[in-house]
Design a protein around this nucleic acid. Structure first.
Lengths: 343, 343
DNA sequence: ATGAAAGCGCTAACAG
DNA sequence: CTGTTAGCGCTTTCAT
């Protein structure tokens, strides 16, 4: 790594024949502390020498990292395979980058959270976190975050315990699930099957299930309501789980899936079995990620404001860093219904 | 941000009643420079005081950031919407994190590359880059990278100009395209249509087109070979572009799409038009991202080793940082055929 | 409006 | 094996 040594502030000062302090002021935009000629002169030298401040020295002095960490807790190495996650990250990173902050990204397994180098190295000013795992694991993750004493935005999840350093940004999963359930109920289904997956246990998934079952229970028109977990939620598992269910119980009149990927798997299984959708069995997804209309019959699903959530979360961290407090404890965004043809 | 001041190395030294240097040695794992008792004593103090080294001071002294930047050049804000990209990033970040490095991520518009804060702030030891844009733009991006003098891994792209600081990690798009074309040619199509998109101009796309056309030309069995560009490659554009083409030329006997998303759009259009696949028209995709078998007839496509490419690229940067040179200029990985039912 | 002095927390180099 | 010295490049503070 024989990199040529970088130009220092002092060298610029010598070049411009001023004191280092004036150069520092120039670099930091404090132009009111110098005459226009001075400013011009120093500006020239900075440009000529291609000066860039040494980040380490700056950091040592100011202890501001200008960096926000994004931690994605996921059971799989492929922690960016979910469109929901990536949209949030895109929103967060674009907003932060536009404000001069850099973004550190790390995917972590649920039980490795506390020991991840994002948490141990502490090179950030704040955090954005997507938790997952069992309730116990999530609680431990939550504790680890609190111990850091950094302003943190928690996506998709809110904890009882409030703090000035914590802000939750979520979508209204329960209301969305209710909305979707109402749409399904309009067809007067006798039986409803909910399909979830066990790969990642998101708090949001529980809220969706709660929303659906609540709405169905209070309607009192559905005779049978079952819930199955389809392995890790991929194609193969979904089809297999559905086949097993159908073999024992016959086809339900409606299948509500906890996300679009599962719904597409269900849709395929039904199509292959020659079952008409939605006439014989209606199907719904959740959290459209751009491929809901890829099938011949477009999937009925919910459109989450993921990118926007990312932007909002990022703005909240920035505000917390600037003003010392988030604007709110919990920010909940509405979810839109995509009126497809499967329910 | 009234954060309690962090414990310093000096304080640990006082607590353990040793010199700061010994603590430093302890923290940096140089245990051979101290007696076991010393090591034990310092270890206790470090744990009791919950000491963590000040990153700024460490950086100022060593000028090692322990950080690698990933830059994704994309025309859209949604720079993480492509499964190919996200798999590469997952591979890169997991590998780097496992080796104690953190990862900085930034999405950049093609013409904002040089001014992105990743390039101007220079807080990284090395870079991993996914370029896109017109040839002129990509050339400019390439120049900007060279100016940084940091070891850089270029994904999906290789430039003429070689350098010790540069390494390309790619998949063999041309060979893969040829392989796929041979599969298509086996059905003896009279006419072939290639569908690309204009959203991002990846160098890889050009190689795929070259592979397909080369194979078809040399076979001399196809009467008509056309290429169309379907807007930004989304559903709507694809269907519209295909309809326009068909209205003018009729249905081709084979449609080869430059990626899976386009292929799924084509598949939908054909299904809706009642055209049988692959009997009347065969269809192929490229770069399967997990949804190739979501449709009733599984898509014939190519499986790229994206995650692995990410891991390999990351290992190369690490090696370049350690030993001062990459293992190779260009690393090319093979692409596997996924034998679906659409071609 | 400009400059000089001091020190942030750490580690390389050397002395004991 | 342990300690001392010096200084990385910058900015805060205070003096001019």
């Amino acid at each position: 790594m024989a990199r040529t040594k970088r130009v220092t502030l002092r060298q610029v000062a010598e070049h411009a024949k001023v004191s280092p302090m004036t150069v520092s002021n120039f670099v930091n935009g404090r132009f009111d502390l110098m005459t226009p000629e001075m400013r011009e002169k120093v500006g020239q030298s900075v440009k000529v020498l291609n000066y860039r401040r040494n980040f380490g020295a700056h950091l040592l002095r100011t202890s501001k990292h200008w960096s926000i960490g994004i931690i994605v807790v996921d059971a799989s190495d492929q922690y960016l395979s979910d469109g929901y996650t990536t949209q949030i990250i895109a929103g967060v990173s674009n907003t932060l980058n536009a404000n001069g902050f850099s973004v550190m990204l790390q995917g972590v397994k649920p039980d490795a959270f506390e020991t991840s180098n994002m948490l141990t190295n502490l090179q950030t000013d704040g955090l954005c976190v997507l938790l997952s795992g069992s309730e116990v694991q999530r609680a431990r993750q939550f504790e680890a975050i609190q111990a850091l004493q950094q302003p943190t935005v928690l996506f998709l999840e809110a904890f009882e315990q409030k703090s000035d350093l914590l802000c939750s940004v979520m979508q209204d999963d329960e209301a969305a699930a209710q909305r979707l359930a109402r749409r399904v109920l309009a067809r007067g289904p006798k039986s409803v099957l909910i399909v979830t997956s066990g790969e990642n246990e998101w708090a949001a998934v529980n809220r969706r299930v709660a929303g659906i079952t609540g709405e169905i229970d209070s309607a009192r028109t559905v005779e049978a309501l079952d819930i199955i977990t389809a392995g890790d939620g991929r194609q193969h598992d979904v089809i297999q789980a559905l086949e097993a269910y159908v073999a024992a119980n016959g086809y339900p009149s409606a299948i509500m899936c906890i996300n679009d990927e599962i719904a597409l798997g269900v849709l395929k299984a039904l199509t292959l079995a020659g079952r008409r959708v939605p006439e014989e069995t209606s199907v719904t997804g959740f959290n459209a990620f751009g491929l809901h209309d890829i099938t011949a019959t477009a999937l009925t699903t919910m459109q989450s404001p993921a990118y926007e959530m990312g932007c909002i979360g990022a703005r909240e961290v920035l505000q917390a860093l600037e003003k010392g407090a988030f604007s709110q404890d919990v920010i909940t965004l509405p979810v839109d219904l995509i009126e497809g043809d499967t329910a």
